[in-house]
């Protein structure tokens, strides 16, 4: 799989020694987005070695950083290629690049461009000036939705372990025998767990701005609570069984905490959560999730024994 572009200097169109120099990461999508954003224009593109990682992540890790930029400028012989001394960097590389140091060490002035590559033409036409709107990182419904598959894949590994366990355990209790129990309680357990995943990894990210609270765990918890309440209300099979109330109670515990946990993990994908904030949130959220999860599982297991 090739997601990388070779680092170095590339020509877009027919750039001369006056053409602007745009800097990007060697993650293929970063490179392609940049190229596609400015069709028909002449520019130099300086690709840094960020180990195939996008601008924002690489800047956070420091691979899209002052060191690499200065080194790449020297290695590409840029001073011979262009007469001006300006580099245009994506704004999101800011956490890795110290503009004043780049100037000191390479002679090039860093100009931070817009956050979205689609704003590049407007930025270019304005004489390489970004508007305030171009400088804001957004987190729109679309941007959140494209992250959902990534979140789901993240839960896959655990789901493959936990779901079969619930399914099998469902057959253990009750009068009806192993197979009937599995199809009844085990199947419901699987549906309930899947609904928790949907609540925490799909619905919470999408409905983020409308869910109450600021902490992601809280948003996920509320979403899980709604989901579990709906599920328990709608599921009437086995209503007359003695273990039914306990079993449903168990899911009112488990679904919200699983959803809260998954929502908490979505902080990593969001574009506005701070590390201090996540640490603070986790300090209360994680013990709460563990306690709720353990209580729920105990309730559920005991419900299987009630006959």
């Amino acid at each position: 799989m090739h997601y990388m572009v070779d680092p170095g200097l590339y020509a877009l169109g027919n750039p001369d020694d006056q053409a602007p120099v745009l800097v990007t990461a060697n993650y293929k999508m970063s490179f392609d987005r940049l190229r596609e954003a400015i069709p028909g224009r002449n520019a130099w593109i300086l690709v840094l070695d960020t180990k195939g990682i996008n601008v924002w992540c690489a800047a956070g890790k420091g691979t899209f950083g002052t060191e690499e930029l200065v080194r790449r400028v020297a290695a590409s012989g840029l001073t011979q290629v262009v007469t001006h001394r300006e580099l245009i960097l994506p704004q999101l590389s800011g956490p890795g690049v110290a503009a004043h140091e780049v100037r000191k060490r390479s002679g090039f002035t860093v100009i931070y461009g817009p956050i979205r590559s689609t704003d590049l033409p407007a930025f270019w036409d304005a004489g390489f000036k970004a508007t305030a709107v171009m400088r804001r990182k957004t987190f729109t419904m679309r941007e959140r939705t494209v992250l959902v598959p990534v979140e789901l894949v993240g839960t896959l590994k655990w789901s493959l372990v936990i779901l079969p366990l619930f399914f099998l355990a469902g057959g253990l209790g009750g009068d009806a025998g192993f197979w009937a129990g599995m199809l009844q309680n085990g199947l419901f357990a699987v549906i309930a767990m899947l609904s928790a995943v949907v609540a925490g990894a799909v619905l919470t990210p999408m409905l983020l701005p409308w869910l109450p609270g600021r902490a992601f765990s809280l948003k996920g918890f509320v979403m899980g609570l709604i989901t579990s309440a709906l599920l328990v209300t709608l599921w009437t099979r086995g209503f007359s069984e003695p273990g039914y109330p306990t079993r449903m109670m168990a899911w009112l515990f488990i679904i919200p905490v699983v959803s809260a946990y998954l929502a908490m993990n979505f902080t990593g994908a969001s574009t506005y959560t701070s590390l201090s904030g996540v640490r603070k949130e986790m300090k209360w959220a994680v013990p709460f999730q563990i306690a709720g999860g353990v209580a729920g599982v105990c309730l559920w297991l005991s419900s299987l024994l009630i006959t």
Binding site: M4, G52, C57, K61, L147, G268, A269, T271
Partner: peptide, 18 residues
């Protein structure tokens, strides 16, 4: 520190030794 912020799914190809 190697948590990647998932703004777009990306991948280390090659590398391996990290």
């Amino acid at each position: 520190s190697s948590c990647c912020c998932v703004i777009e799914p990306d991948k280390d190809s090659g590398g391996g030794g990290l």
